[in-house]
Design a protein around this nucleic acid. Structure first.
Lengths: 148, 148
DNA sequence: AGCACACTCTTATTTATTTAGGTTAATGTA
DNA sequence: TACATTAACCTAAATAAATAAGAGTGTGCT
């Protein structure tokens, strides 16, 4: 379904999501209309889920990042939990993980006080019995790039 | 340094990184050249770190995502470890975390065999004493959007 | 063979972006 | 106060990019 040209398009867009169609067309050696048609299909078929600007969180004061491991007492509260998570902007990611029936959250906050407030808030959500926080000291690698 | 118009630009680009300049100009009520000038500065000052297409990993067979917690025996090997991490495409993220002198990795692989191979590889890196893997069952939230 | 489909192309048109040059308002300084 | 400087912004013209329209080519199927 995806040929080498599609892969080349995707590789480029993983590196620069604002690459111009004219440049992509040059890159893969097709005319602009043909490239445009392919790109449209990649978008429509959900192969490309979206395009996002990545901002420097530190500029906005979000200097603290942490992984928060959440233990829940039962799966009955999962839906409410998910709603709470989605409404909380400090939580960037949330995954249900295997083992201990728990979840892992990635969150960013501006200061330790906000972190404390966030932890207290999570603790108050139905079914949450315990949280363990892993404070991030430094980032060695941070990408969303899939190996194509 | 950043006014309301800049924030509006950034909000929009966090949602759609390919938003046209003409649309951004309309949105904030400035002329196209003025918008362009602002955008250029946001990029040059590193406030916008880049633009990325987000791909659907499942299309490419990367159905498994896991957090791998790595224990290291000393900080002497951190640099070599970081190099290994950067060279390994399955590892999307790697953070040094507080407590236990360890690291947290986020990785995607195509199947359990690849996961096993990846874990064996990480175990072989200098200084690594132990790993604990958290297998992700489902994704509740996954964004990079900063609350502006 | 004859048809349908998928993919590509060129050309014309429309839309988007950049460049050039000028206006205004705020700030600092002789 | 008067004058330069700077940082915004604007309009209009020129350039570049994207889309639309129409046609050609090759493959597989009946």
């Amino acid at each position: 379904m995806l040929d080498d040209l599609d892969i080349a398009i995707l590789k480029k867009l993983q590196e620069n999501g604002r690459t111009k169609r004219s440049e992509l067309a040059d890159l893969i050696g097709l005319s602009l209309p043909s490239l445009s048609e392919r790109l449209k299909k990649l978008e429509e078929n959900g192969i490309i889920e979206g395009y996002y600007a990545k901002l420097n969180r530190h500029v906005f004061g979000y200097d603290i990042m942490a992984f928060i491991i959440v233990m829940m007492d039962s799966s009955k509260n999962y839906e409410k939990f998910a709603e709470h998570v989605k409404k909380t902007p400090e939580i960037l990611e949330c995954y249900a993980v295997l083992g201990e029936g728990s979840h892992i959250l990635k969150a960013i906050v501006k200061d330790t006080k906000s972190l404390e407030q966030l932890l207290n808030k999570i603790q108050s959500w139905p079914g949450v019995t315990r949280t363990v926080t892993n404070f991030i000291l430094s980032t060695i690698k941070e990408t969303t790039k899939i190996n194509l």
